[in-house]
Amino acid sequence: MTERMQEPTLLVLTALADSPRHGYAIMQEVQELSGGRVNLRTGTLYGALDRLVRQGLITTCAQEIVHGRARRTYALTPEGRDALAAEARRLRVTLHAVTDRLATPASHATVGTFA
């Protein structure tokens, strides 16, 4: 995965980076990681999980029946860990550039001035 990750994908992979989780736990973790900004709906989450499984970034590592329904537990694959690490590096470079630019005083202010 060489293109920029969408935020929900980044958050789902991050939620799985430290331990496997089932769907509801992933939804809770994404909400916490995003400071409450991202609330994945059930259909959106499971669509994303299916896509990430097809892409080889996550895998189903366990399945159990809870209250008559299948509960799958998902884990990051080595490829998923590599993709997440690559995205973290990309974000770090971008953050560094932004921080540097904001710390450097503008040489000539043009706020509100258009030629």
Rank of each mutant, 00 (worst) to 15 (best):
E87S: 04
H96D: 15
A17H: 03
V38G: 00
H96M: 14
A86Q: 10
A70Q: 13
P8F: 03
D18C: 00
H108W: 13
T77I: 00
F114G: 06
L84I: 01
L33Y: 07
V30S: 08
R89C: 09
I65G: 04
L40A: 06
R41G: 13
S34V: 09
G56L: 00
G68D: 11
G35D: 09
M5A: 07
P78R: 11
P8C: 02
L11Q: 01
M27C: 10
R21I: 08
T110N: 10
L10H: 01
V12S: 05
L102A: 08
Y74K: 00
R81I: 08
G80L: 03
R90T: 12
R90S: 13
I26M: 05
M27W: 02
Y46V: 12
R51K: 11
R81H: 12
T113H: 06
R71V: 15
A83G: 02
L102W: 08
A88Y: 02
L84V: 04
T73C: 05
S107T: 14
V53H: 09
G36T: 08
A75E: 03
L13V: 02
T42E: 14
M1P: 06
E64C: 09
R4S: 13
T44R: 13
G43A: 15
G23L: 13
L76V: 01
A15K: 01
L11S: 06
I26K: 03
A15Y: 07
R89I: 11
F114L: 11
T110W: 02
R69T: 11
M27G: 08
G68Q: 05
L84N: 04
A115P: 14
L16S: 04
R41C: 09
R71E: 15
R41A: 13
A115M: 12
M27L: 14
E3Q: 12
L49H: 03
A75L: 02
L95F: 10
L10Y: 03
L33S: 03
A85H: 01
R92D: 07
L16V: 05
H96T: 15
L57I: 00
Q6R: 12
G68W: 06
T73Y: 00
D50H: 14
E87D: 02
L13N: 05
A15N: 02
R71S: 15
V38Y: 06
V12D: 02
T94M: 08
R21A: 02
L102K: 09
Q31N: 10
Q28L: 13
D82R: 14
D100A: 15
R90V: 06
A86K: 09
R21S: 00
T110R: 11
V93H: 15
L102Y: 08
L11W: 10
L102R: 06
R51S: 07
M5F: 13
E3P: 07
H108I: 10
V66A: 11
A85P: 01
M5T: 01
I65E: 04
R90L: 08
